[in-house]
Amino acid sequence: MKGEQLQRVRRTKRNQLLLFLIILAVLTIWSAVGTDFTPGALWGGIGDGARFLFVDLMPPNVSEFPGLIQPALDTIYMSFVAMVIGSVIAGLLSIFAAATTSPHPALQIGLRAFSAMFRNIPVIIWTILLVASFGLGKLVGTLSLLIVSIGMLVRCYAESLEEIDMGQIEALRSTGASYWQIITQAVLPQFMPSLVGWSLYNLEINVRASTIVGMVGGGGLGFTIQSGMKLFQYKEVSMAVLLVLCIVLVTEFMTNRIRERII
């Protein structure tokens, strides 16, 4: 009886997997047809891409380096400023957005929807939108990064806040502590490691995103890359890309180190 059941479960599981794979294959083929994609095109594309990468882009024009320092620094500054301000704002909002700490369920749902909007409209769209009213430059770049940082961090913070130990909160509540006392004295200490962890992760994302933001007018290295592409100055482009690469890798390395030290 039991063995039979087990076998039936196994069979349905296998069938489910098979069905899933078939659907996936159909979807993939549908996508390939829709995008005029063929294995040949893939092969050719990779070939062309590689040729462009290694012939047109190489070697990077190192003499451009001094001129790229300022945009590179701007990229870092924008990412960092957006991360810090975003963390502070998202920190406050997430307290109201997490089921465990929210004073009212309506506030919770409202803030979640609000942050979902910030998060799910891609950063490049925010930049295009903001450029129309704020003009080109670093202000727009910082603001766009700030908006998506808040969107992402509210969600991540709130999820962490929902996993905190309610016992510690209960204990402080029983001493007669008020709402804000509980938030700062019981919630914050527990929340600190994930707050820092998510913020560092957000910094990494900002550094990547800031290049994208730059392409549509937000300043920094992205702008250099975009204009270089348009002017066919590929050797300068590759120098800028190389810098992006360095900044991203260094940021990742440093955030990992900090994370290990404090969590």
Binding site: A209, I212, Q226, V241
Partner: peptide, 10 residues
């Protein structure tokens, strides 16, 4: 490390 959008440009 290189953002997707830059890959797209390339």
């Amino acid at each position: 490390a290189i953002p997707t959008l830059i890959w797209a440009l390339i």
